[in-house]
Simulated assay, not measured.
Amino acid sequence: MNSLRLIVHGRVQGVGYRDWLAQTARALGVHGWVRNLTDGTVEAVISGRAGAVQACFAACHDGPPLAEVIRIESTACDPPDRAIFEKKTTAER
């Protein structure tokens, strides 16, 4: 199982990015979570089969129609505790 922690920069809050990512991840069979950070970025953990994680990561560069993704920081991480994809509350970075 592959797992990535993402920090998505750009216009990614107030444009439906979290809902879009949750729907995209679930459709790809990826689990993890997504949340807004107080600095205006979006943080996510995506985990699953290598091909599904890569497809989800690639899609994150586009996001929903109103988003403008400037860059994504990605690092390997431990898989999430639960085999679902969930939206979490906003957190400090």
Score class of each variant (00 low, 15 high):
Ala58Phe: 10
Tyr17Lys: 14
Met1Gln: 05
Ala76Leu: 15
Arg93Tyr: 14
Gly63Trp: 01
Ala91Leu: 13
Ala27Glu: 12
Arg93Asn: 14
Asp62Leu: 06
Phe57Glu: 11
Trp33Asp: 03
Gln23Lys: 14
Asp81Gln: 13
Leu21Thr: 12
Thr38Lys: 10
Arg26Glu: 07
Cys60Val: 12
Val69Leu: 03
Pro80Leu: 13
Trp20Gly: 00
Leu28His: 11
Ile84Asn: 06
Ala50His: 13
Gly40Cys: 11
Asp78Thr: 10
Pro79Val: 13
Arg49Asn: 12
Val12Lys: 09
Pro80Lys: 09
Thr41Phe: 08
Gln13Tyr: 08
Asp39Leu: 08
Val12Met: 11
Ile7His: 11
Trp20Gln: 01
Asn36Thr: 10
Thr41Leu: 03
Glu43Gln: 04
Leu6Pro: 05
Glu73Cys: 04
Thr89Trp: 06
Ala55Ile: 03
Leu37Tyr: 08
Pro79Gln: 07
Cys77Gly: 04
Thr41Trp: 09
Val30Phe: 04
Ile46His: 01
Ile46Ala: 01
Pro64Phe: 10
Gly32Ile: 12
Gly16Thr: 13
Asn2Tyr: 14
His31Gly: 12
Gln13His: 12
Val69Ser: 01
Val42Trp: 04
Ala25Thr: 08
Trp20Met: 04
Gln13Phe: 10
Met1Lys: 04
Leu21Gln: 06
Val34Ala: 11
Ala67Ser: 06
Thr75Leu: 07
Gln54Asn: 07
Gly10Glu: 08
Thr24His: 06
Pro80Trp: 13
Ala27Gly: 09
Asn2Leu: 11
Gly10Ala: 07
Ala67Phe: 05
Val53Asp: 01
Ala44Ile: 02
Gly51His: 10
Gln54Val: 04
Gly48His: 14
Thr41Lys: 08
Arg49Phe: 04
Gly40Ala: 07
Val45Cys: 03
Ala25Trp: 05
Val8Lys: 00
Pro80Arg: 15
Val34Phe: 04
Thr89Glu: 08
Cys77Arg: 06
Leu4Asn: 02
Gly40Trp: 09
Gly29His: 03
Arg93Lys: 07
Gln54Thr: 12
Arg18Tyr: 10
Gly40Asn: 14
Gly10Arg: 08
Glu73Leu: 09
Gly48Tyr: 14
Arg93Cys: 12
Arg5Gly: 01
His61Pro: 00
Val15Thr: 06
Val45Ala: 02
Val15Ser: 03
Lys88Pro: 02
Val15Ala: 00
Leu6Cys: 11
Val42Lys: 08
Glu73Ser: 06
Lys87Ile: 15
Gly29Ser: 03
Arg82Val: 09
Ser47Gly: 03
His31Pro: 01
Asp78Gly: 05
Arg11Leu: 03
Ala91Asp: 12
Glu68Ser: 15
Val34Trp: 02
Phe85Gln: 08
Lys87Ala: 05
Arg71Trp: 07
Ile84Gln: 04
Thr75Gln: 07
Asp78Ala: 14
Arg71Cys: 02
His61Asp: 00
Glu43Asn: 10
Glu43Leu: 09
Thr75Glu: 15
Pro79Ile: 08
Pro80Asn: 10
His31Cys: 09
Trp33Pro: 01
Ser3His: 13
Ala52Pro: 02
Cys77Asp: 03
Val8Tyr: 04
Val69Glu: 00
Gly29Ala: 05
Met1Pro: 03
Glu86Gln: 15
Thr24Asn: 08
Leu6Met: 11
Ala25Asp: 02
Ile7Leu: 14
Gly29Tyr: 06
Pro80Thr: 12
Arg5Asn: 05
Ala91Arg: 09
Glu92Ser: 15
Asn36Asp: 02
